[in-house]
Simulated scan of single mutants.
Amino acid sequence: MHPWLSALIGGVLIGLAATWLLWANGRIAGVSGIVDNVVKRSSLDEWGWRAAFIVGLMLAGGIAMNAQGQHALSPYKWPMLIVAGLLVGYGTTLGGGCTSGHGVCGLGRMSKRSFVSVVLFVASAMVTVFVLRHVIRVST
Rank of each mutant, 00 (worst) to 15 (best):
L21D: 05
D36A: 15
G103P: 00
M65I: 01
S42A: 14
I28K: 15
Q70T: 10
W78I: 15
I63P: 01
N25E: 14
F115Y: 10
V118L: 06
G56D: 01
K77F: 06
G101R: 09
E46S: 13
G61E: 07
S114C: 06
D45E: 14
G89F: 05
Q68F: 08
G30E: 12
W20T: 09
A52L: 15
G48Q: 09
M58V: 13
V31E: 05
G85F: 07
H102D: 03
W23S: 08
G101N: 08
H102G: 00
K112D: 04
Y76G: 01
M65S: 09
G15S: 02
V31F: 14
G30R: 12
N25R: 15
I82D: 05
L16A: 15
V38H: 04
A17P: 02
V83N: 05
N37A: 13
E46R: 08
T93P: 00
G101C: 08
V39H: 05
L107Q: 04
V39K: 07
V88N: 11
V38D: 06
I14L: 15
M110S: 11
A24P: 01
G15E: 03
G33D: 08
L86C: 15
C98H: 01
V31G: 02
L57N: 03
R41I: 06
A29D: 06
K77R: 13
N37K: 15
G33E: 12
L59S: 05
V38P: 02
I34V: 15
S114N: 03
A60I: 08
R113V: 08
A60L: 14
M110N: 11
I28Y: 10
A17W: 10
G62E: 14
T93K: 14
S114D: 05
Q68G: 00
G69Y: 09
Q68L: 14
F115K: 07
E46V: 04
G61N: 05
R113P: 00
V122T: 07
L13F: 12
A52I: 09
I63V: 13
G108Y: 02
L81F: 03
T92Y: 11
G96D: 07
T19F: 13
Y90I: 15
F121D: 05
V118W: 01
T99L: 06
L120M: 12
I34K: 02
L13I: 12
Q70A: 13
N25C: 08
N25A: 13
V55Y: 06
G30P: 00
S32N: 11
M65A: 14
D45N: 10
N66A: 14
A52P: 00
S43K: 10
H71S: 11
G96P: 05
I34W: 03
L73P: 01
S42E: 14
K112M: 09
E46M: 10
